[in-house]
Each structure stands twice: as structure tokens, then as C-alpha cells.
Write a protein that binds this DNA or RNA. Structure first.
Lengths: 166, 166
DNA sequence: GGGAGTTATTTCAAGTATAAAATAATTCGC
DNA sequence: GCGAATTATTTTATACTTGAAATAACTCCC
């Protein structure tokens, strides 16, 4: 590139004069974040306006809907990738709303099993159907093959990150 | 597809029997979120361990570093895609740390201009260099062309979402 | 130039999030 | 079985975040 050619050719100082440039990865990261924010803020708004629920509560219920037998708190924390204490508070509030049921596990008194109540499940299913439509709508400008590629590359990014984290 | 062919062919009930399925877009969205969480949590950890700073503060400083003349609070709120009140608090704390300088705008007494102090700039530059390296490291498993494609498709997703939001 | 509407920011209450310490129960080795 | 290490969850302190209401300053129109 022109820019590189214009630099002094002294190999001793080259590294200092032209440290490795990682601006592209940074731009990629910033774009990932802004894409996420754009969509998330809209989803948050629609959940509030239409169902008077917050996104963290919705996300937690979505996990439980996939686990009819209930889940341990730690399992929720892992899947949602948030801290333990965070889950404790969210579950408290959802139990208070009558959407969740928390019961001690039979064999291990440290563990609590959390599951959706009948009302919780009914409520969630209605919201989830709308939510799925919103997401499809927001990603509607991408063809199926573009969506597939995006899916694949994000998967690869996750593998890459996990490897770098070790 | 086989699955569709196996369904009853009654055109009257088809819509009910087989509502449009948007599961793929949903999976894409969930993967985007988990990719973001994975990387963000690691960056947050490294910023804390190495520089004792939080991610929101770092992000705010990054915006200001790009604006030598300073920025209005509303501009920060727009760029970071967070609420106004959020920015007020973050700026308060950063001013308290001596990293930011807040001054009334000359021509409009409603507006405050915020900029990095000399110390703020020095501090940020050091952190930013490390941060850039971390991001490059985390995305290192993707080739340049894969990064390019990902960048392009995320851009397209943003356009799509913005259009759907209207 | 005075009031209506708009814009910029702050305040407020509630909720979400973290890290670290505390509590409590289990498992494992001996 | 006893104690050490581990595991599951809660608690605590602090920070971040939101949406809505409040405050304050500007603009514009008549």
C-alpha cells in the first residue's frame, strides 16, 4: 500500500514506526455492538409497550420455556451469561409476579429448581410468538443465504473468542 | 421440503397448520447476542484487571478521543445508543476521576461540552492500544475475507433493522 | 418582545448488573 | 465419619441503565 511504502525502510525501527494495525477488527467489533444495540433497544421498547415486560425477564422465561422440568439457578446464569446474583434478583421478581415457581431440589438442598407457572407459560408463549415475528421483521432485509453466512461467521467468531479466552 | 410435503394440503387450514416459521432469524439473533456477551464479558474483565476501569466508561472515553473539540452530552447519548440520564451519571463519575472536563457551551447555556483532560487522554490512549490488541486477538480465528464479509452483513442487518423500525 | 413549542440536560424511582464475600450443603479422601 | 475442598446460591455494595417527569434555555412566530 502507498502508506506503507512512504514509511522509512529501516528494519530496526519499522515495528515502532508502524505497529501492527488492528483497526479492522476494532471496527468489526464496534459494528457488532451497534447492530446489537439497534435491535435490542427496539425489542425492549416493543416488549414494554405491548406486554409491559422487560427484556431480561423475557430472556429468562425463554430459557425456562425450553426446560419443562425446570432449571437450576446456576444453569440459568450460565446460559444467559450473567452473574449468579443477577439471576437471584430476576427470579425473585418473576416469582413475585406469579410467572415463576421456585422449589427446592429433592436430592440437593443447595439447589433450587425454577420453572414457569401455568400462567407464566401461557404469558410467555404469547409474547414469544410476537417476538419471533419482530426479529424476523428486523432481519428481513437479509436473504436466507446471507442469514446462513452470518450465522456461520458468528459461530466462527465465537469459536475464535473462546479459544483466545482459553 | 419433506416436512412441508407431509402436511395436509387443505389450503383453508394451511396457514393455521403451518404458520410462517421464523426460527432461523431467531437463532441468528440469539447467536449474535451470545457472541457479543462472550467477547464483552472478557473485555470487561481485562479492563478491570489491567486498568481498573469499567466498559461503559471506556466506551465513553473512546467517543471523546475521536472528538478533540469535545462533545455535547446528547451527542454522546446518540452515539453510544443509551439514554440521556445514563450519560449524565457516567460523565459525573469520570469528571470526579479527573479524566473528563465539563464546560458550559459559549453560545447555548443549555448545552455542556465534555472533553478528555490531558490525563484522561493519556490514560485512554494506553488502554485503547491494549484494547485494540485484545479485540484483534479475539477475532483472530477469522480470515480477513471472513471479517470483511461479517462486516458487510452486519452493516446490511443494521440497514434492514433501521428500515423495519422506520 | 412575549408566549408557545422545542431542545438539552438533570433528576428520580425502579430495575438490571457486577464482583466479592458470606452462607450453606455436598463430595471426597482418608 | 471427619475435615478439607468444592459447589450452589444469596447477600452486599456499587455501578449502570432505563423511562418518565422536571428544569431550564432556546427559537420562532405573530
Amino acid at each position: 500500500m502507498d502508506e506503507a511504502a512512504a514509511l522509512p525502510l529501516d528494519v530496526e525501527t519499522k515495528v515502532i514506526e508502524r505497529p501492527s494495525d488492528h483497526k479492522d477488527e476494532l471496527r468489526l467489533w464496534l459494528r457488532l455492538m451497534s447492530c446489537k444495540m439497534l435491535i435490542e433497544n427496539e425489542i425492549r421498547r416493543r416488549l414494554r409497550d405491548n406486554y409491559d415486560i422487560t427484556l431480561p425477564r423475557f430472556d429468562l422465561m425463554a430459557q425456562l420455556d425450553k426446560a419443562p422440568g425446570g432449571m437450576k439457578l446456576g444453569e440459568l446464569s450460565q446460559r444467559l451469561m450473567v452473574s449468579n446474583g443477577n439471576i437471584t434478583g430476576l427470579v425473585d421478581r418473576l416469582v413475585g409476579q406469579g410467572l415463576l415457581d421456585r422449589q427446592a431440589a429433592p436430592n440437593d438442598r443447595r439447589t433450587h429448581l425454577v420453572k414457569l407457572t401455568a400462567e407464566g407459560r401461557r404469558t410467555f408463549r404469547a409474547m414469544a410468538a410476537a417476538h419471533e415475528g419482530w426479529i424476523a421483521d428486523l432481519f428481513g432485509g437479509l436473504s436466507s443465504s446471507e442469514q446462513e453466512t452470518l450465522m456461520r461467521l458468528l459461530g466462527k467468531a465465537k469459536v475464535s473468542a473462546r479459544k483466545a479466552i482459553g
